[in-house]
Design a protein around this nucleic acid. Structure first.
Length: 528
RNA sequence: GACCCGUUAGCUCAGUCGGUAGAGCACCUGCCUUUUAAGCAGGGAGUCGCUGGUUCGAUUCCAGCACGGGUCACCA
């Protein structure tokens, strides 16, 4: 599939070279960005300053011996006015050989057109990079999401909001660093390639080290390494980095994603709530000038303090039933009333188990086998399902959901005076879990028992149960100060703060299957 | 992994109840010195996602496959 436009432009390349014009020179001295011209226009116009701009030619309107166009750089767009009598015949001829999409450098003074648009009257013109492929069309732009994700470079050229999201993401991360650095946290880096994975419930990616001939895992969390640093006395650490989870992909999940994890010695999870709400308050205020923003239909209010709600309170509030001391039978019957397919939930993650179709909102499933509720953690799993189906989607304003069942929180400390609960919370905004935090378990023997329990679950078929990390336990035996820790999903936080519906809109290159049609001869060939 | 939907020109999309396709923008040629979705006149452009099947004939019908989106499953 040879593109006619591409062939024409390659022909132009030769023509340009024959005329002594290099289509790919090395540098251009820029004095102003488009944005700087626009924001200082009055002065520049009054003082007749000659500005020097570089960017992409994104439109061109030729009127015989005069032409208009727009140049676009990182800061915005500015109109250019070209006149044959100003440029001279030779440069004006060069203009006619330029295409929309070419990168150019121009200089000239600024003025206002009849209609009042700020414009540069071009006196010199230079081609900085010849574009061989046409840009998407100017009215509708690039809509096709597959092309947008695969060819993000094109998406960035034509869809301004993509750039805005990228900038917002950068500012969010910068705010986080500023916030934590100001509180004497130090930023560290821990291994991505790990001989043993841990710190979350997830299936890992597996890789292999050739020279050492050993299996390695891509980390699913930073947690266990950062807590080793707590043992080492660093007291306040954080890491912003990629984690990798071998799971499905949807609008809130990408196989590689960015997480902030931080740990603070001598703090507990209530301190973490304060820290997190302070941090997010600061990020949102820096981004929007006020502690609130719009997400879809909702106006989100990040004013402090955020609402705090225990796990069982949240369930009670939504379902009208107290479940803290409920038996598995009671939870089961409530699930059935809510329309949850209990058998399907309990059958999950058992390799080889039949996946039953889910029947939502239907009547109670007939002839169900009661033996399923003997599955390990049946009660907790059903509670989790109830929570994520019937509660979480309705938690729109920022809220800390606290005190989860201990069984699903093996790295957290037990809540004092509540044997069944862990000192753990999840910040939930717009129905999304933005993170996970606990008072960290620092009792080495209690932690060892939790690992052993995980091992049992693993034998029971739970592929995501956490492996026992003996070095981590050894570290704890040296004594880890009491500490609070938080993990925050940066991608999801960015989604909420940029009003993005899909995680793919906040990740520059989201994971996609390989593009089959991108063959040598089709796209990249014809190197003439 | 399951189900549903989509894939036609560089881009955004029509269309063919089965007879190998159109529009706008973009591109090329000409005219045009304040336009901005510039205008006017003319022109070129497509393996209709891929592979099979049915058929005299398939871009259209059928099947499989690929890729994407949505929902579900899994999870953060």
């Amino acid at each position: 599939m040879s593109s006619k436009v591409r062939d024409e432009r390659i022909a132009k390349l030769d023509l340009l070279r024959k005329r002594g014009v290099s289509p790919y020179p090395t540098r251009f001295a820029v004095t102003h960005s488009c944005g700087a011209v626009l924001s200082n226009f009055e002065t520049l116009e009054r003082e007749e300053t000659v500005v020097s701009l570089a960017g992409r030619l994104v439109s061109k309107r030729k009127h015989g011996k005069a032409s208009f166009g727009h140049i676009q750089d990182r800061s915005g767009r500015l109109q250019l006015y070209f006149r044959q009598d100003t440029l001279g015949a030779e440069l004006y001829e060069l203009l006619t050989m330029l295409d929309v999409g070419d990168v150019i450098g121009v200089s000239g003074a600024v003025f206002r057109t009849k209609t009042g648009e700020f414009t540069a009257k071009v006196e010199t013109l230079e081609l900085l990079s010849k574009s061989l492929r046409p840009l998407p069309e100017k009215w509708h732009g690039l809509r096709d999401v597959e092309t947008r994700y695969r060819q993000r470079y094109v998406d960035l050229i034509v869809n301004e909001e993509v750039r805005e999201t990228v900038v917002a993401r950068s500012r969010i991360i910068k705010s986080i660093r500023n916030f934590l650095d100001a509180r004497e946290f130090i930023e560290v880096e821990t291994p991505v390639l790990q001989p043993l994975y841990g710190g979350a419930f997830a299936r890992p990616f597996v890789t292999h080290h050739e020279a050492l001939n050993m299996r390695l895992y891509l980390r699913i969390a930073d947690e266990l390494y950062l807590k080793r640093l707590m043992v080492g006395g660093l007291e306040r650490v954080y890491e912003i980095g990629k984690d990798f989870r071998n799971e499905g992909i949807d609008r809130t999940h990408n196989p590689e994603f960015t997480q902030l994890e931080l740990y603070q010695a001598y703090a507990d999870y209530t301190d973490m709530m304060v820290l997190l709400e302070d941090m997010v308050f600061e990020i949102v205020t820096e981004l929007f000038g006020e502690p609130s923003c719009q997400y879809g239909e909702h106006r989100l209010d990040f004013s402090k303090p955020w609402r705090r709600l225990s796990y069982f309170e949240a369930l009670r509030e939504r379902l009208g039933v107290e479940l803290a001391d409920a038996t598995v039978e009671e939870v089961r019957s409530l699930c059935e009333k809510t329309g949850i397919d209990v058998d399907a939930v309990l059958a999950r993650e058992k390799p080889g188990a039949e996946k039953r179709p889910k029947s939502r909102g239907g009547g109670p499933p007939g002839g169900t086998s009661r033996s399923d509720i003997d599955t390990p953690l049946a009660r907790e799993r059903l509670l989790e399902e109830l929570f994520s189906e019937a509660v979480q989607p309705y938690l729109i304003q920022p809220v800390f959901v606290c005190d989860y069942p201990k069984e699903i929180s093996p790295l957290a400390k037990q809540k004092a005076g509540h044997p069944g609960l862990a000192e753990r919370f999840e910040p939930i905004v717009a129905g999304f879990e933005l993170g996970n935090a606990f008072s960290e378990q620092n009792d080495p023997l209690a932690q060892a028992r939790q690992f052993d329990l995980q091992a049992l679950h693993r034998e029971g078929g739970d592929a995501e149960a956490q492996p026992k990390d003996l070095d981590y336990l050894r570290a704890l035996e040296y004594g880890m100060p009491p500490a609070g820790g938080i993990g925050v999903g940066i991608d999801r936080l960015t989604m909420v703060l940029t009003n993005s519906r899909s995680i793919r809109d906040v990740i520059l290159f989201p994971h996609l299957r390989p593009e089959a049609s991108l063959g040598e001869e089709g796209e990249a060939g014809g190197d003439d």
